[in-house]
């Protein structure tokens, strides 16, 4: 079984090169397992990220045969080609730099209810619909699949941010106007688009983005 991996060295700064590795047949192997095989047995200078091995941490997002997905959920087939997630800065090989993005979320106060005066004794009615958006593991796969998103572009925040805004829109504690915020962050661009991919099965375009674009008073 063969697996081709994009390599990038920040110290030379040269364009990525592709390296192909031979792997034994593995029982229902995943792409993550393939990478770990290469790392353990062949080349431990290979840079890639993971933490939980199954679906929870959101750190293993990659471009696999041209499409973004979580490495721990994607079956490895002969000839698989893996590259880092597109649209994001690369630190080494398959590792992307997520620090700016987290900083941006902070500036946008897009991860906490505002004002934050939660309290366990408060009477709160959480809309049932919110649960589906809460499945976001911040894997950035949607950002990599979006034709409009570009790292560093402040006019269009990108799908993950919209999902976060929808979480907050549905958070009864949150007093900020998240629909207005979404419009300022370019969500109207999505009107023309069919939608983006999400390994956690969040309906990003039809649910989150539609909800932020709606004008009802929900």
């Amino acid at each position: 079984m063969k697996m081709t991996i994009a390599r990038f060295d920040p110290e030379t700064g040269e364009e990525s090169r592709y390296e192909t590795f031979d792997l034994p047949e593995l029982d229902r192997a995943t792409v993550l397992q393939g990478l770990m095989y290469v790392y353990d047995n062949v080349d431990s200078t290979l840079g890639f990220s993971f933490n939980c091995r199954y679906k929870n941490c959101g750190l293993c997002g990659l471009t696999i045969d041209g499409r973004p997905h979580l490495a721990c959920l994607t079956p490895l087939v002969d000839g698989t080609v893996v590259e880092p997630l597109h649209n994001l800065p690369v630190l080494r090989d398959l590792i992307i730099d997520r620090r700016d993005l987290f900083a941006a979320l902070r500036t946008l106060t897009a991860f906490i209810p505002e004002p934050a005066d939660s309290n366990c004794d408060a009477v709160i009615h959480e809309p049932a619909e919110r649960a589906v958006y809460m499945q976001c593991v911040e894997c950035l796969v949607c950002m990599a699949s979006c034709p409009e998103y570009q790292h560093g572009d402040s006019a269009f925040a990108g799908p993950m941010v919209f999902v976060k805004l929808m979480q907050l829109h549905l958070d009864p504690r949150d007093a900020a106007n998240r629909r207005e915020q979404a419009r300022q962050l370019g969500v109207e661009i999505c009107l023309e688009c069919a939608g983006c991919a999400c390994p956690s099965n969040i309906p990003i375009r039809k649910g989150a983005i539609a909800g932020l674009l709606a004008t009802d008073n929900r």
Binding site: D9, P10, E11, S44, T45, L46, G47, L91, R92, I95
Partner: peptide
């Protein structure tokens, strides 16, 4: 390995 940045080893 010789890499300075992001050296997994």
């Amino acid at each position: 390995g010789p890499a300075k940045r992001c050296n997994p080893e």
